[in-house]
Nucleic acid binder design. Structure first.
Length: 638
RNA sequence: GCCGCCAUAGCUCAGUCGGUAGAGCGGCUGAUUUGUAAUCAGCAGGUCGGGAGUUCAAUCCUCUCUGGCGGCUCCA
C-alpha cells in the first residue's frame, strides 16, 4: 500500500527529490541519476545498506552502493554465498547451511553436511550457472519469530541464529528461486548480478569440540562481471608463477627434503642472499648503537620455567633428554638475552642496552601449517632485545617504528600494522600490560601510521606492534614486531642501579625488523617474482663472450668486477649467444654483459639490464662505476 | 594437529579400462664459434613416494604410513 504522502530524499551530490512515500530505492535513484543506478548493487539509506527494492517511507539520504564500495562489495560476496548454498542444497538436499559471510578476499559458506567431494562442487557450479541464467530475484520476506522457527525447524544452526536476533528486531529471509535462507540482507536484485562468481575451493572446518563433526566450508569470490572475474583468475595464475617455493627451486636458493619437513636447506645462492640481508641489518645495528651477542641454542627446562616458556610455549618447542634432564631448543632469543643482562651488575649508564642476536631458532610448528619458507620449524630472526628504563621505552619504540618503515621501503614492500593486545593466557599483572599497550598505542598514534587492533593476539609475555606483509596470493604474514615487555625482566630478577643508588627493574623491548630471513625472503621473492634487487642477487653480472676469441677478455672483466666485491662470472661459448642471454634472463641475473670483437677492440661493454631488451654501450670504467654504485646504494631496480 | 585433495625421470606433465612406462625442459657426450629470450644429434636417467593387502599378475584396486597442496587452528 503506497504511502500517499511524499517524502524528501537527499542524494550524494546534495540534490533533493520529492517522491511518493513507499517509492522503491531503485526508483528514487533512477529519478536522481539513471547512470549511477546501472552500477548500483544495493543502496545506502541513511547510511544503512538496503535492497534496491526496499521502500522508502520517510525523509532521508540515499546513495547507490556499487562494487567499488566495501559495503557494496560485501553484499555481492554475500549474495554469492547464498547462490552457493542454493547450489549445494540442489546437490545435497539434506545439507544444513550455517552461515555465509563476506571476507576480505571473497566469501565462504559453512555447511553441516557430509564431507564434500570435487564432484559435489561440479554439481554446485552447474546449479549456480542454471540459477544465474534464470536471473532469479532475491526476494526479502519478514517473518514472525514463530514462523521462522517453524520454517527452519530442521536446522539447529539457523534456529540458533534466530534466537540471537535481538528482541524487537524483525526476522527476515530471502528467497532465491526455491531456496530460502535466513538473512538480514541486503542482497543484489537477482542472480543475474552474480555472473562473476567463482568457487575457489572447499575444506573442512574443525570445531573446538573434536566430538562435533567438522563443517564443510566452500570458499569463493564474486565480481560484478565475468570479465572482472577472468582478470582476477588471470592474476591468480600469474601469482602462482611467483610462488617462492617454485622460484626457490628454480633459482637454487633453498630446498626441502622429505625427511626433514619445515627445515630449510639453504643452497649456495640462497646463502648469498641471506648474508646480504644480514649485512643490510648489521650496518644499521652498528649505526644505531647495538652490540651483537650469541647465546646457547639449548637451555635446560629451568630457564624456560623462569621465562614462562615452559608453561606457555612448551608445546611449540623441540625437547631433548640428556643427563636425566630436559633441554629445550630455544624458540626465541629472549631468555638468552635476559641471562646475558643478568651476568653482572648493571648501571643505568649502560641503558639503553641493545643486544642483537641472529641465532637459529626452533619451533615445533604443527605439520599442517608448514609452508615453504614462510612457515618453517627452524629459522633466524634479525632479533634484538633492548633493555631500557621506563622513560626510554617510548623514544626507543618510536625509533624502531621509523626504522621498520625505512627498511621496508628499501624493498618496496607495502605493509600493515597491527597492535596485538593482551591474550587470554598472559604472564604477570594486567596493570603492567595496560601500560605497555598504552605506550605502543601512543607511538602508533603519534607516528600517524594506520593500524588495526588485534585483540588478544599479543604474545604471552608482552603486547606488540606487528608488521604484516602479503604474499603473491594476498595471504598476510607477520614479519617485523616490536614488543614492550615488563614481565620477563621481573621473572629473571633483572636489575640496574639508578642514579638514585637504588636497584630498578629494566623494561625490555623485543623487536625484529625484517622478522626472519626465511619468511622475509619468501615474501620478497613473491613480490619481485625472483627478480631480487642487484645487491641481493646471487649472481650480479654475467659476462658473455660472443666467441672463444673474446673469452680471455670476459675472464679479465670478471676478475675486475670481483676485485670490486661484485659477484660476476663468465659464461662459456658452448651455447648460442641467444641461449645464454635467455638463460641469464631466466636466472634473473640483473646485469648481462656481451663482449664481442667490437667491444674488445674499443674497450667497451654492451650492457643488457634485466627486464630490458635494449643494450647500452658503456666504456669499461663507466660500466664498473655504474654497477658498483647501483649495488652500493642498494638500488631496488638494476 | 584437524578436514579434503594430491604424489609417474632433477623440473613440468602425458599414460596404463590391472599385463612393470613416455614427452619437453634440464643433465652428459659430440658437432657447431655463435651479436642479445631456446643450434643440431646421440646418450644416460624411473623397484610410477614407503609398507602391507586383494589378484595368476598392482604404477593402476583397498588399507596404512610419509610428504606436499588448499583451507582451519596457530605463528616470525
Amino acid at each position: 500500500m503506497p504511502d500517499p504522502t511524499s517524502i524528501r530524499v537527499r542524494f550524494p551530490d546534495g540534490k533533493e527529490e520529492s517522491v511518493p512515500g513507499g517509492t522503491a530505492a531503485r526508483d528514487a535513484l533512477g529519478r536522481w541519476d539513471p547512470e549511477q543506478l546501472k552500477n548500483a548493487i544495493a543502496a545506502s539509506w541513511n547510511g544503512v545498506p538496503v535492497d534496491l527494492a526496499s521502500r522508502l517511507t520517510s525523509d532521508g539520504t540515499l546513495a547507490p552502493l556499487t562494487f567499488e564500495d566495501r559495503a557494496g562489495r560485501d553484499i555481492l560476496q554475500h549474495s554469492s554465498a547464498h547462490l552457493v548454498a542454493k547450489g549445494l542444497l540442489e546437490t545435497i538436499p539434506d545439507a544444513r547451511p550455517t552461515h555465509g559471510p563476506p571476507t576480505d578476499e571473497g566469501f565462504y559458506y559453512d555447511f553441516d553436511v557430509r564431507p564434500l567431494t570435487p564432484a559435489d562442487l561440479d554439481s554446485v557450479r552447474a546449479a549456480m550457472d542454471r540459477s544465474i541464467r534464470a536471473k532469479e530475484p532475491f526476494v526479502r520476506r519478514e517473518l514472525s519469530r514463530q514462523e521462522a522457527e517453524k520454517f527452519f525447524s530442521g536446522n539447529p544452526h539457523k534456529l540458533r541464529y534466530i534466537s540471537e536476533v535481538p528482541e524487537g528486531e524483525t526476522v527476515s529471509v530471502y528467497d532465491t528461486g526455491t531456496f530460502t535462507d535466513l538473512c538480514r540482507g541486503p542482497h543484489v536484485p537477482s542472480t543475474a548480478w552474480l555472473e562473476g562468481v567463482h568457487i575457489l575451493g572447499f575444506s573442512a572446518i574443525g570445531q573446538e569440540d573434536p566430538a562435533i563433526p567438522p563443517l564443510q566450508r566452500i570458499r569463493g569470490v564474486g565480481f560484478p562481471t565475468r570479465t572482472e572475474l577472468d582478470a582476477y583468475l588471470k592474476m591468480r595464475k600469474e601469482a602462482e608463477a611467483r610462488d617462492h617455493r617454485t622460484l626457490g627451486a628454480k633459482l637454487e636458493l633453498f630446498t626441502f627434503i622429505e625427511e626433514a619437513p619445515g627445515f630449510p636447506i639453504w643452497l649456495p645462492n640462497g646463502m648469498v642472499v641471506v648474508h646480504e640481508l644480514e649485512k643490510f641489518v648489521r650496518e644499521h645495528l652498528a649505526a644505531a648503537g647495538y652490540v651483537e651477542i650469541r647465546t646457547p641454542l639449548l637451555f635446560p627446562q629451568s630457564v624456560y620455567e623462569t621465562s614462562g616458556h615452559w608453561d606457555h610455549y612448551r608445546a611449540d618447542m623441540f625437547l631433548t633428554e640428556l643427563e636425566g634432564r630436559t633441554f629445550g631448543w630455544k624458540p626465541m632469543n629472549c631468555p638468552g638475552s635476559m641471562l646475558m643482562f643478568r651476568s653482572r651488575a648493571r648501571s643505568y649508564r649502560e641503558l639503553p642496552m641493545r643486544l642483537a642476536e641472529f641465532a637459529p631458532l626452533h619451533r615445533y610448528e604443527a605439520s599442517g601449517t608448514l609452508h615453504g619458507l614462510t612457515r618453517v620449524r627452524e629459522f633466524v630472526q634479525d632479533d634484538a632485545h633492548i633493555f631500557v628504563t621506563e622513560e626510554q621505552v617510548e623514544p626507543e619504540v618510536r625509533t624502531l617504528l621509523a626504522w621498520i618503515e625505512k627498511a621496508f621501503s628499501t624493498f618496496r614492500l607495502s605493509w600493515n600494522v597491527e597492535l596485538s593486545t593482551r591474550p587470554a593466557k598472559f604472564l604477570g599483572e594486567a596493570e603492567l600490560w595496560d601500560r605497555a599497550e598504552a605506550t605502543l598505542e601512543r607511538v602508533l598514534k603519534a607516528s600517524g601510521v594506520k593500524y588495526r587492533i588485534s585483540p588478544g593476539e599479543g604474545s604471552f609475555y608482552a603486547p606488540k606492534i606487528d608488521i604484516h606483509v602479503r604474499d603473491s596470493l594476498g595471504r598476510p604474514w607477520q614479519t617485523g614486531t616490536i614488543q614492550v615487555d615488563y614481565q620477563m625482566p621481573l621473572r629473571f630478577g633483572l636489575a640496574y642501579q639508578g642514579p638514585d643508588g637504588q636497584l630498578h627493574t629494566p623494561v625490555v623491548v623485543h623487536r625484529t625488523i625484517l622478522g626472519t630471513w626465511e619468511r622475509f625472503l619468501g615474501v620478497l621473492l613473491e613480490h619481485t617474482a625472483g627478480r631480487l634487487p642487484p645487491w641481493l642477487a646471487p649472481m650480479q653480472v654475467r659476462v658473455l663472450p660472443v666467441t672463444d676469441r673474446n673469452a680471455p677478455a670476459a675472464v679479465g672483466l670478471v676478475e675486475e668486477l670481483r676485485s670490486q666485491g661484485l659477484r660476476a662470472e663468465a659464461a662459456g661459448t658452448e651455447e648460442s649467444l641467444s641461449k645464454r642471454v635467455r638463460s641469464a634472463e631466466v636466472e634473473r641475473v640483473p646485469y648481462v654483459v656481451v663482449l664481442g670483437d667490437k667491444e674488445v677492440a674499443e674497450g667497451t661493454v654492451a650492457l643488457r639490464v634485466r627486464g630490458s631488451k635494449e643494450n647500452r654501450p658503456f666504456s669499461r670504467p663507466e660500466f664498473l662505476v655504474y654497477v658498483s654504485e647501483r649495488v652500493r646504494t642498494r638500488s631496488f631496480d638494476p
